[in-house]
Design a protein around this nucleic acid. Structure first.
Lengths: 252, 252
DNA sequence: CGGAAAGTTGACGCGGGTCAAGGAATGTGG
DNA sequence: CCACATTCCTTGACCCGCGTCAACTTTCCG
């Protein structure tokens, strides 16, 4: 039931930039009606993707930025050794694709973790529109700054702490961002596998599993497969003490 | 002698954006003369800072971005527990301060690791100039994208590898970036303490020390306090196998 | 010259990675 | 509908990499 609920919420489809307010991060924030209208015209709405499909792959020619409308994706890279490194989980209202601008090619992969709909922002158009609408450009820089700032915070989290702090920080971070999307901050459906979580946090999958069990034993969480309920938010926060990983984040 | 050499090179002062080509990353790259002239007018050159002085501190009102002209700085944050987390080391031609745009305040500290001169780019002026010069705006986005992309790569490095891989990756990364600044790629003067290196890499200071000794024993490096000479670049690269940490990087 | 800060080296113990086995959920073909 | 395979997750046992503690050396700076 929790899952259904959240999926339905995440699955709510918005139809234009007017009523798109999935998160403060999204572009129209603080823009006037005329501006939003223009932005609305360049935005494309590709058909929703199914779990396991890519929005883009590393090496693809960079053409567009993407804002998540509903669902969730992960960004990852492959190492020379061939194995995967999860870089980020991206929620509705957050932006992906920024890492492709400088080289003209995407440097990471974006993969749907569940049914996913995105807004596509062709970069040429966006660039042009930024010249017309100074407000948009400022907003772009603010978003980009936020991405960098979120990267920094997640680096704080991983800097020098043990597995408990990491997982706790990760959950708190998700909780905050879920809330920003209008979802529950305590009942989280995690569409990614334990594998992905471990990979992202730099922990073995077994460790992640054990920690979920431990947190449950300590009455911080209730865990039911990929549905988790935070029952003691402040207890979880105490675990992260010594770092500050509970802020909004976005990817590449 | 190595130290003197490098310090002198890093210490070479440029006087305007015309002949400022410390690194490809810097703003004038790919701009026409008129554009550079305008940019040159808004750039300020504060007096050089001494070791231990701050360019800005977390909480300071955000007014400007800074490009390093010569020297090196570290960016760091303080955790709630009061201890420090090093986020990045920033070299000539690289940009700091981007993390302050979104909140209007700097979220990290920037501290000179040696005598440091910077270019100050008042953000309001820069923003305005971006409207006049589309080329500048594009370049800004490219730089920002590069910062994000570099963050991503460093995350790959820290993702899931042991201490040897981390330190080797770190040294290769620095080597590449030193070369971009026109410095030697093999003779590196590291102005930061072992403490800073360990903090940045998520390793204990003792581990860093032991690894330097180990790498020296394996004839990969010659270590003389803060001066290190890479004697076997490919050997060092083999260590990092399984990740890709040898690309250019810049900080917030 | 003395005191502090930075770096090195050794001994030890634990957190978490690795290996292995088993359970639960989902899919597939008959 | 069931039998079977596959994927995902959990739990236990073991062990090693690296953090911690401690002692010592070297460098720096007044």
């Amino acid at each position: 039931m929790l899952r259904k609920n959240n999926v339905h919420k995440i699955g709510k489809i918005v139809t234009s930039c007017y009523n798109c307010n999935v998160a403060e991060l999204c572009l129209p924030h603080n823009m006037d009606t005329a501006g939003i209208e223009k932005l609305d015209k360049i935005v494309r709405h590709p058909a929703p993707l199914h779990t396991g499909q890519h929005v883009f792959r590393a090496g693809d020619r960079f053409r567009s930025l993407f804002v998540i409308r509903s669902g969730m994706l992960k960004t990852y890279c492959n190492t020379e050794g061939g194995d995967e490194r999860v870089l980020a989980f991206v929620l509705p209202g957050e932006l992906v694709g920024l890492d492709g601008i400088c080289a003209g090619r995407h440097e990471s992969n974006s993969l749907a973790l569940m049914t996913l709909s995105v807004c596509e922002l062709p970069y040429d158009c966006l660039d042009e529109l930024c010249r017309e609408l100074p407000g948009l450009q400022e907003q772009m820089m603010r978003i980009v700054s936020n991405v960098i700032s979120a990267d920094q915070k997640s680096r704080l989290l991983f800097g020098r702490c043990n597995s408990e702090e990491r997982l706790a920080g990760f959950l708190l971070n998700l909780s905050t961002r879920y809330k920003l999307c209008g979802l529950s901050a305590t009942e989280l459906y995690l569409p990614m596998s334990r594998q992905d979580i471990g990979n992202y946090l730099g922990l073995a999958i077994e460790t992640v599993s054990r920690l979920f069990a431990l947190f449950q034993e300590e009455d911080l969480l209730k865990v039911n497969r990929r549905e988790i309920t935070i029952t003691d938010l402040s207890g979880l926060k105490e675990k992260v003490q010594g770092s500050q990983g509970s802020t909004s984040a976005a990817a590449s």
